[in-house]
Every structure is written in C-alpha cells, then in structure tokens.
Design a protein around this nucleic acid. Structure first.
Lengths: 340, 340
DNA sequence: GTTAGCACTCTTTTGTGCCGACTGCTAACT
DNA sequence: AGTTAGCAGTCGGCACAAAAGAGTGCTAAC
C-alpha cells in the first residue's frame, strides 16, 4: 500500500497529538479536531491502512492508535514542521551564557543545563579531544621530587592535572631543558602529528627518553577514551513523563544515564557531518534503551569537532521543540567558541 | 514508662526485622523468630508500650509495627550490633583502590563508587579546601596575551584550570618576576594566612597589584563555595528499595541528589570531630528529605579535614552494613592519603 | 506477669456487572 | 470507487460487594 497524501496528513496529526496528550488517538478525535470534512469511518479505514503499513499500533483492540518507531522516524524526517522559539526562550538562552565562559567544559555544562530546563528532558553532552587539535603551548612543571604536572594548552582548552612521573635523578635544570625541547618539537603541531613522532626520537632526546615517553602516553590518554568528559543534567526529568511511571523503566533509564561509560558509548557517533542527528529507539545490543530517543547536535571549536550535546528522553518526545532548542543553543555556542 | 530490658530487645528485633524485610513486624512473628519463650499476647502488650513511648507506629489499626524516627535514632545509638565485613568485601574495597591514586578527587570518586556498589545505596561525597591547607608551590603560566593559568600545588591536591586575567602590557619577564615574588611570599603558608596578606601589599608589589589581586580572588574562590567538588554515584539505587515505588518520592529524592548545591548543603556540616555521623530524617527547612537518612564519615589528609563521604538512602537503611562499609573504606582512604 | 481466646478493625483480593470508548464490518449512498 | 451511517463486538476501567487474611486490643483466668 502506498502512503497517500491524506494518510501522511493523518499520520502527522496522530504523532503531533500523541506527543502532546500522551493518549492513543482515536478516529473520532481526528475528525473533530482536524479533518472536519470527512467522517470518522473514513479515517478509520485510513488508520487501518497505516497500521497495516507498520506505522501505527494499537494497545488493544478497542483503543486508539499510537505511533510506531517507524512512524516517529518518518515524522522527524518528513512530516514534522519546524518549530520556533519564543523570544522569551531565546532570551533565556542568551542570559544563561553570560557568565562563566572561560573554559570549554563549563560552557558546555552550561548548555546542557539550559537545554534540560527548556525542554524538560534529560540533557547530555560530551567533549572530546580530537587528533586535529593543535598544541599552542606545552610545559612541564615539577612539584615533587618524582612527580610533575604536564600542561598542554590547545586551541580549545587545556590539559589539566595530568600527572607524570619523572626520574628523581634529574635536576630542575634538566627538567627545564627537557621541557624546552619538547616544547620546540610539539608546539604548532596537532596531537595526531605528535603521535607520529613517537618512533623517531632524535639524538638530543636520548637523555630524556623517560620523560618523553611519559608525555607521549599522557597525550595518548588525553585524545583517547579517558580524555572524554561527559556532562548530564536533569537526570530526574524523565519522571515528568507519564510513560515512565513504572519504577523498572526509570531504573533502566537511570542506569544508562548515570553511567558515564554507557553514556559516552551512546554519544560518540560517526555521523559528524550531520547538524542534528535523531536516533529513535535503541537497537538490540546498543546501550540506548529501545524505548528512548536521542536527539543530538555536534559542536566544533576552531573548525574541529569537539563533541556532541543533546537530549535523551522517551520515544514520545517533543522533537519539534527539542530540535529548535538545540539549534538555538547551537548558534550561541558557535558564537562563543569562535571568539575563543 | 521506662524502657525495660525486654522492651529494648524487642525494639532491636523490630528494627532489624523491618530493615531486612521492609514489612511491618507483628507480635506473632516476634515470638516465632525471636522470643520463643513468651506468647504473642505478651509481646503485644510490650509493643503497645513501645508505641506509647513514640518508638513504634502502626500504619493502620490492624497492621504490625514500624519503627519511628526516634526508634532508628535509638537503634543506631545503642541497639545496633557492630557489623563485620566479609573478607570478600574487604578484598573488593582493596582492589578498587589499586589504580588511579594520583589525585585526591579521583581517590574520593573511587571511594564513592565502591560504597555505592557494596551498600546498594546512593553514595555521595564532597572535597573542600580548607584554610589550613598549605601552599607548596605556586606559579603563573601565561598562555595568551591577556590570560594566564594559575597553578597552586598544595599538600593534598592542586588548583586546576584557574584562569586569571593579566594585563596585556606586561612582558613575559615581568610575569615571571611577579610569579616569583608571589611564590616567595606564599609558599609554606596556609590559605588562611595568605588571605590576611591581602591588605598589606608591600612596595615591591605595586607594579603587579593587578596580578596580585587576581591571584587573591582565585584563592578566595578556591577555598570558598566554588572550590568544593561534589561526587555522586548510584543515583538510581534508591529504586531498588520498595519504599520508593512512588514516582513522586523518587523525583523528590533525585531533585536533591542531582542538585550539587543542595547536596553540598546537606554534606557540609559542623560536626567534624565525629568519626561516623548519622542523620535520620531531615528536619523542616533542611534539604535532606524527611524520609531520608544520611550516614557520613569525614576524611582528612595531612591532618586537615578535607571532606565528607557517605550514603544517602531511606530511613529503613541497613545502618549496620553501611557503617561497616564506611569504616572499611575509611581505613584505606586514610592509608592512601597519608602516603601522599 | 502471662496467656488463651475472641471480637473487632482494616487491608487485600477476587469477582461481577456495567459503562464508555473505539474499532471493524457491512450495506447503502453519491 | 470512495464515503458514510449504523451496529455488533472487544476491551479497559470503575464501582461495589463479598470474602479472606493478618493483626490488634481486651478480658478473664491461670
């Protein structure tokens, strides 16, 4: 069966209505609120068609229709109208970013907070460090006999509290020299390029090969899994939505959302070119629960993708609003990160 | 009415039983499982006495008894037997602390994780920075024309990513000199002492008074509210306990536990000399919900109190287990922090 | 002080009937 | 061929009643 124009329209209404009311949609309510020029019987046969196509389901024989996962996908892809933020909401976003904008992570943390408040869903984000990030400054700072702090300033942010071991035998002057050499070698290069240097340590370095190795492994850790920071806000927001009245569902949701590893897994995705990415219902074997949707956007700083931010919530999510909030926050985020 | 010996014993059993079963305790079950040499009628009259004293309550006329908040307080204070960890549990704790012990916060984060896993409750902690903490090293590191990173190494941890503004007009050499002067002045002093210096800036500093002011305000921020870091683990664990089947209760709980400010408020307490502190049921106006208990211990590094860690959960908490886990973790924590 | 026995209370469970909300189908209409 | 009114059928939800079960408080006797 093919999707006629009227079927599309009806499907759109069903999804819209279900998203706002959380109640199965009946043929009668469609004719009353929306398609006033046909009878409910007509709508019923259309609904039956949509159900046959796998776009709608019924909870029981005598209940209204509920969108299937496929229907949500179609909805966000083709049916959904573009939402607009009210000026009030726009101002709310702007004001939220006025303070604390010195550090990438705190900016994103802020974004997550705003998104959660405006959408009433759990908001999440991660900030990673790409191989393309360029090193602007690098320094080694001894603070104990055998311990030093490695500081790397990049375009976006900087490595913090990266402790490295150093040989006790080295004098402060030697450390300084090593630091200088490393700095000369690394500054201006991207992490990826630096990694390649690993093999060809030049002569002048033989003295400092221990310290060099420490720095390299710190960098590898930084651009690897451990360098990813994850942010969450509004963990409990899920409880505001009636489909999560069941304690088991909440538990499942929270177990994913409060587990940084699982969350990272969900957020780190390949589609880095798509502006807004909507994933509806986790597939088998994925960490995203099958009854959850994830709407994300990517953000970049100095032209390099830094991470992802977005919203995780029930399938019956207000995609329209979520998308416009993410876009709104994205614009401001872009502004801020450009000026850094 | 005074608390006879038998009443104490019965009360202890009621609390024990209620903690493990989550069911109101009946006179019959007491004679069956515990006081086998008297009849249920006898126990009933004792229970009536305990109820009159405000230690037990009934949900309705024909239900068993449930401990009151007073009873819990009496229980943890006098009645509760000391629990012991199994060797399995002790090993679990030890193993968890094997890796990542370089930084105070990650150690405590680790502790929180272990506690939550072993007790099956939500575990929280905070790490603050006291005025008594001594500065071991201080340095200023310019990374942009008008921005620098202030690094302060203390006995326990170090200030991370503290950005300060610096005047563009200053040369690198001047920054270095300022840094040296500040270092000379501050190293070896505690934050509290440093704060006092604020007024009497000596002559040689007049050139660098901007930078000095930045450093001072960073330090003040650090030992003030913003320098406190809060850790949480197992936010969803509360759902494992039947008294939190109600979505509203969960929401209330989560709204406290996921709000860093509220959580800090709950954790920051004056009783810093008590090893283990048990607070049962939040009073009116407090952030701790009235149906929650908080069991905490304080930890210190280099003799200075650093923070608090503990468990937050339902009134019907397995205090015995929680206390032993906190003690077990505390011992290892102490070991680790001593060797830093 | 203790106990058996009993009446009483209150919750929980089960069953029944009824209402209302929808649907699917059919036969008639345009 | 598409649309519609009408109607039977299905199912959830609700109210109500009855019965079962758990536990208590009281009393009279030991």
């Amino acid at each position: 069966m093919k999707l006629s124009d009227r079927k599309r329209k009806i499907l759109q209404f069903v999804v819209d209505d279900y998203i706002t009311t959380a109640q199965p949609v009946s043929s009668k309510s469609i004719t009353e609120k929306y398609l006033k020029d046909v009878s409910s019987a007509t709508v019923r046969s259309e609904l039956a068609g949509l159900e046959e196509m796998g776009l709608l389901t019924q909870l029981h024989t005598s209940s209204g229709r509920v969108p299937s996962i496929e229907a949500y996908k179609l909805y966000v892809g083709e049916l959904m109208e573009k939402g607009k933020l009210t000026t009030k909401e726009i101002n709310f976003i702007k004001n939220a970013f006025n303070e604390h904008s010195d550090n990438l992570e705190s900016v994103v943390q802020n974004a997550v907070k705003v998104i959660s408040e405006l959408t009433d869903y759990t908001s999440v984000a991660y900030a990673a460090h790409s191989e393309k990030e360029k090193i602007e400054k690098i320094d080694i700072f001894r603070y104990k006999e055998d311990q030093a702090l490695l500081l790397i300033v990049t375009e976006n942010t900087l490595i913090r509290d990266k402790f490295i071991k150093i040989p006790k035998s080295m004098s402060d002057a030697q450390i300084k020299e090593a630091s200088g050499l490393i700095s000369k070698l690394f500054v201006g290069k991207a992490f990826g390029e630096v990694k390649e240097l690993s093999g060809k340590v030049s002569e002048e370095f033989s003295l400092y090969k221990d310290i060099f190795a420490s720095v390299m492994s710190a960098i590898e850790e930084y651009i690897g899994k451990d360098g990813v920071s994850v942010m969450i806000e509004g963990e409990g927001k899920i409880l505001n939505h009636p489909e999560y009245a069941d304690a088991d569902k909440v538990k499942n949701f929270l177990s994913v959302v409060t587990d940084r590893e699982k969350l990272t897994d969900i957020l780190v995705d390949d589609n880095d070119n798509i502006e807004i990415n909507i994933k509806i219902g986790g597939e088998n074997g994925e960490n995203l629960p099958s009854d959850c949707s994830l709407v994300t956007a990517t953000y970049s700083a100095s032209g390099v993708k830094v991470g992802t931010y977005g919203v995780i919530g029930p399938l019956r999510m207000d995609y329209q609003k979520v998308v416009s909030v993410l876009e709104g926050v994205g614009k401001i985020l872009e502004d801020i990160l450009k000026n850094k």
